[in-house]
C-alpha cells in the first residue's frame, strides 16, 4: 500500500513539477504565466497527434515514437507559447487576461483540431487521440531497497527525463548569465535594461521555455492519467502547478516539495478509498484534495511569500 502511494504520488507530482519549473522561469522574468494550463494542453495535443501518426507508420513494436512524441510536444508548446509572447510583450496586454485567453484558445483550438484531424486522416468522428499508457520500468538495484525503493519501482521513463531537465533548469537559473539576467528582469527591468540586457528578449525566451516544459508535463499526463488526448486534459493541473510555484516561493527546490505534497495527498486519498471499500463516487471527493491542500497552504504561507518585484507589470521603457 505504501509502495503504491509513493509510485502514484511521484507519477502525479513530477509532471506537475516540470510545469511549475516552466512557470518559475516565466514568472522570475516578470511575466505572470497563467497560460500553463493551455500550454500543457496544446503540447499534449501535438505530442499525441505525432504519436498516433508515428505508431500508424512504424507499428507498435518500437519505443521510438514515444520519445519523438515528447520532442514534438515540446516544440508544439514552444510555438503555441508565442501567442502569450505576442500578447504580453508586443501588444502589452494585461498578463492575467492574456494567460486566460491563451487557455481558452488552446481548449477551443485543440478540441476543434482533434475532431477535424480524426475525421480527415482516420475518417472517424472522435474527440480524442487514443494513446497507450506508457511502459514502466523497475530501476535495477535501487528498487530493491526497502521502503524508499518504491520510488524506483514501476517508474515511467518520463520521470527520469523530468529529473534530468529539473537539474539542468536549476543550473541555468542560478549558475548561468542568462539565469542572472532573467532574475534581474523580474525584479527590476529598468535596471536590467540600463545594464544592457534586452528585457523583451529575455522574457520571450523565458515564456518559450515555459511553453516547452509545460508541454512535456501535459504529454506526461496524457500518457499516465488519461492514456489519451481529449479535452479532458484541461483538468486545471496547470493552475495547480502555478499554486505549487507560489507555495514554493518561486524557487525550484521548495516547489518540488509542494508538488510532492499534492501528489501524495492525492495518492493517499485514492488508497484510503480503495482500502476502505467505499463506492467509487467517493473518488470525486478525493480529487478535491490537491486543490483543498493548495488553498489551505496558501492561507498559511502566502504572507511570507516574496514574489518577483516586477511580476505582472507591463514593461514600458519610458516609465519611471
Amino acid at each position: 500500500m505504501i509502495d503504491s502511494i509513493i509510485i502514484d504520488g511521484l507519477a502525479f507530482a513530477l509532471p506537475m513539477f516540470i510545469m511549475a519549473i516552466g512557470g518559475i522561469f516565466s514568472e522570475k522574468s516578470g511575466i505572470t504565466n497563467l497560460a500553463i494550463e493551455g500550454l500543457q494542453g496544446f503540447g499534449a495535443f501535438t505530442g499525441a497527434f505525432a504519436m498516433v501518426i508515428l505508431t500508424n507508420a512504424m507499428g507498435t513494436g518500437t519505443q521510438v515514437p514515444y520519445y519523438i512524441s515528447f520532442l514534438v510536444a515540446a516544440a508544439g508548446g514552444m510555438i503555441y507559447s508565442m501567442v502569450h509572447v505576442i500578447l504580453c510583450i508586443r501588444f502589452k496586454a494585461n498578463q492575467v487576461i492574456s494567460g486566460v485567453v491563451v487557455n481558452i484558445l488552446a481548449m477551443a483550438l485543440t478540441s476543434f483540431l482533434t475532431r477535424r484531424l480524426n475525421l480527415m486522416i482516420f475518417g472517424e468522428t472522435s474527440n480524442k487521440f487514443i494513446l497507450e499508457t506508457s511502459v514502466r520500468y523497475d530501476v535495477p538495484v535501487l528498487s530493491e531497497i526497502p521502503f524508499i525503493g518504491a520510488a524506483f519501482k514501476r517508474v515511467y521513463p518520463f520521470e527520469i527525463l523530468i529529473v534530468i531537465i529539473a537539474v539542468i533548469a536549476w543550473y541555468v537559473m542560478y549558475r548561468t548569465p542568462y539565469g542572472m539576467h532573467l532574475r534581474a528582469c523580474g525584479d527590476n527591468p529598468h535596471a536590467a535594461d540600463a545594464a544592457g540586457i534586452d528585457v523583451g528578449r529575455v522574457q520571450m525566451i523565458a515564456i518559450v521555455l515555459s511553453g516547452g516544459l509545460s508541454a512535456i508535463g501535459g504529454m506526461c499526463y496524457a500518457y499516465s492519467i488519461s492514456a489519451n488526448f481529449s479535452p479532458d486534459i484541461y483538468l486545471g493541473l496547470g493552475y495547480l502547478a502555478i499554486a505549487a510555484l507560489i507555495f514554493g516561493n518561486w524557487s525550484i527546490l521548495p516547489t518540488l516539495g509542494a508538488c510532492l505534497l499534492f501528489g501524495f495527498a492525492r495518492s493517499i486519498g485514492h488508497e484510503v478509498i480503495k482500502n476502505l471499500g467505499m463506492p467509487s463516487t467517493y473518488n470525486d471527493l478525493v480529487r478535491t484534495l490537491p486543490y483543498v491542500v493548495t488553498l489551505l497552504l496558501l492561507i498559511f504561507f502566502s504572507k511570507n511569500n516574496r514574489a518577483p518585484r516586477a511580476l505582472g507589470e507591463v514593461y514600458f521603457r519610458g516609465k519611471r
Binding site: L235, A243, I246, D284, L285, L298, I299, S302
Partner: peptide
C-alpha cells in the same frame, strides 16, 4: 486577509466545487 491572488483561489474553488457537487 491572506494576500492570495483571486485568480488562483477562484480556480481552486472552481474545481473543489465541481468535484464535491459531482459527488
Amino acid at each position: 486577509k491572506f494576500n492570495i491572488n483571486e485568480v488562483v483561489s477562484s480556480i481552486m474553488l472552481n474545481y473543489i466545487f465541481m468535484y464535491v457537487l459531482t459527488f
